[in-house]
């Protein structure tokens, strides 16, 4: 399945740089970053620790502003896109509100964004079904496993139908088995919606398995050094991870990372 369209890119990053601090403590987190993302793509940002991949994600989500350069989403500023609620965000930690049960956690963005209350139940039910947590809507976060909590976080990020899903190492804290299962779940969600995903990860196999393109970043100052297109056919499954094409792509990304 190919969701890419030939229209204008949904995300356009031009010559972004970001510095933290000043004087002797100045840290150059990003420099000369260019990135175009088409609607419906799944882009992974991969690179060594401290290469600025989370910073780039936060620039796109307008959670921090770049020092120089321009970032546009749907041909408007990222600030405008945030105000228009174009982003769903999933962090490494689930960041659930521990005083709300699963249903009320997923309702949170609807509540904040003023979606009519009559739509909540239906929308939340649809998300619960999408992430497979129908039977857990009245559970509290502390009653769920880490993987389930992260699925609630994904449901919460998608419930207001954002056009872009920003994910910052969402499965980094999960064990390998759960992680592979969650990868499959995420792909399933991705194919069932028309959301564009920007996905920060440390894991080469994860990036290759999930993405339509992998953007490899180099360390200090962080920039995108290679972009590897992943032309693995959809739908992908556990078997995909055993094909020679998959191994070749993993090798290609690994070599791109090693060049720095």
């Amino acid at each position: 399945m190919n969701k890419q369209t030939m229209s204008k890119p949904i995300i356009e990053i031009q010559d972004i740089s970001k510095e933290f601090g000043s004087g002797p403590n100045k840290v150059e987190a990003l420099t000369n970053v260019d990135l175009k993302v088409d609607s419906g793509e799944f882009i992974s940002l991969i690179g060594p620790s401290g290469c600025g991949k989370s910073t780039l994600l936060r620039v796109i989500g307008d959670l921090i502003s770049p020092t120089t350069g321009s970032a546009q989403v749907k041909e408007k500023s990222v600030a405008q896109a945030r105000t228009d609620r174009d982003y769903g965000i999933v962090f490494q930690a689930p960041v659930l509100f521990e005083w709300r049960n699963v249903r009320r956690n997923i309702e949170l963005p609807l509540q904040v964004m003023g979606v009519p209350k009559s739509e909540w139940t239906e929308r939340v039910d649809a998300q619960l079904e999408l992430v497979g947590l129908q039977d857990f809507d009245s559970h509290y976060p502390w009653q769920l496993s880490g993987g389930m909590q992260q699925r609630v976080a994904i449901a919460r990020a998608l419930v207001f139908r954002p056009s872009i899903l920003l994910m910052d190492e969402p499965f980094g804290a999960l064990d390998e088995m759960t992680r592979e299962y969650m990868n499959l779940e995420l792909l399933n969600i991705y194919t069932r919606t028309d959301v564009t995903i920007i996905f920060v990860t440390h894991s080469i196999p994860e990036a290759v398995f999930l993405s339509t393109r992998v953007a490899v970043m180099s360390k200090r100052p962080g920039t995108i050094s290679h972009v590897v297109p992943i032309e693995l056919p959809h739908p992908r499954s556990f078997d995909t991870r055993e094909t020679s094409q998959y191994f070749e792509l993993v090798t290609e990304v690994r070599e791109a990372l090693r060049e720095h």
């Binding site: 965000i89 509100f97 904040v112």
Partner: peptide
Amino acid sequence: NEDQRELMRSYSASWWQLFSKLEFPS
């Protein structure tokens, strides 16, 4: 929690929403 604040910011929550939905219950 700083991540919870960032989440509310990503929703463009108003001051009152930040207070009543996050800061007060937290």
